[in-house]
Simulated assay, not measured.
Amino acid sequence: MANTYFISDHHFGHSSIIDFEARPFADADEMTATMIAKWNAVVNKEDKVFHLGDFSFLNKERTKAIVSELNGYKILVLGNHDRGRSRTWWLEVGFDEVSEYPIIYKNFFFLSHEPMYMNKQMPYVNVHGHIHSQKYEGRHYFNVSVEHWDYTPVSFEQIRDSVVVSEEQS
């Protein structure tokens, strides 16, 4: 059975992010190789991955090479650093689907790049990236930025189970 995963903010090719976020890599090439290996260690070819933005700072050829190495059916929700390139550009580099807007998943999870405003009375959960190693408090937010998950995609079950635990604690 295929699994579903979520991840964001790889920033492939962005060497400055190593210092900005204290990433444990010597350079952008090591970061790229490690993040590809961690992705493929959990994601199989038949799995689905929602990438919630800020995928690559590299040119089309190099971005396409990275996307082709990554397992799974890949859906990109555009992040602030992805928006300088068209939806078509991202499809041409190998994403199977590209959305300019947040996606509602399983009628309960809002998938977006940047955290969305979530009223405390709303029962929904916003799965997001953008804020890297920061974290919003509360049961309405689930940050899938690579810094929180050892650069490895997070399974839907991990997110669902975390939400259930939060509900039980409130």
Rank of each mutant, 00 (worst) to 15 (best):
151 Y>P: 01
46 E>H: 11
51 H>G: 01
144 V>N: 02
28 A>V: 08
113 H>D: 06
142 F>I: 00
10 H>I: 09
134 Q>W: 14
41 A>L: 03
74 K>Y: 09
22 A>D: 14
94 G>R: 05
102 P>L: 09
133 S>D: 15
105 Y>N: 04
47 D>P: 01
26 A>T: 13
152 T>E: 03
164 V>K: 12
116 M>Y: 08
96 D>K: 08
60 K>Q: 15
47 D>W: 04
18 I>G: 06
74 K>M: 09
25 F>C: 03
92 E>Q: 14
131 I>W: 07
16 S>G: 11
90 W>Q: 03
42 V>G: 02
170 S>V: 12
164 V>M: 11
96 D>V: 09
16 S>T: 13
48 K>N: 10
55 F>V: 05
40 N>P: 04
29 D>G: 08
154 V>D: 00
120 K>N: 14
168 E>G: 11
15 S>G: 10
82 D>G: 03
142 F>R: 00
113 H>F: 07
89 W>P: 03
47 D>G: 05
45 K>D: 14
23 R>L: 07
129 G>T: 00
16 S>K: 15
77 V>Q: 03
44 N>R: 15
70 L>H: 05
95 F>I: 08
150 D>A: 05
51 H>P: 04
67 V>D: 03
56 S>D: 04
10 H>Y: 15
60 K>E: 15
157 E>N: 11
74 K>C: 09
119 N>R: 13
110 F>V: 13
144 V>W: 01
69 E>I: 04
24 P>N: 06
90 W>H: 09
52 L>H: 01
161 D>N: 12
33 A>Y: 04
75 I>S: 02
59 N>R: 10
137 E>K: 15
9 D>M: 03
20 F>Y: 15
23 R>S: 05
61 E>G: 10
108 F>N: 13
38 K>L: 10
68 S>L: 11
94 G>H: 06
7 I>W: 01
112 S>R: 01
166 S>F: 13
36 I>Y: 03
31 M>G: 00
42 V>K: 03
86 S>D: 10
91 L>R: 12
126 N>V: 04
20 F>V: 11
121 Q>S: 15
116 M>I: 13
89 W>K: 04
67 V>N: 01
12 F>R: 07
123 P>G: 14
28 A>L: 08
115 P>A: 07
38 K>I: 01
142 F>P: 00
124 Y>E: 11
92 E>W: 05
106 K>A: 10
46 E>W: 05
143 N>C: 03
144 V>A: 02
84 G>A: 11
8 S>Y: 02
35 M>L: 10
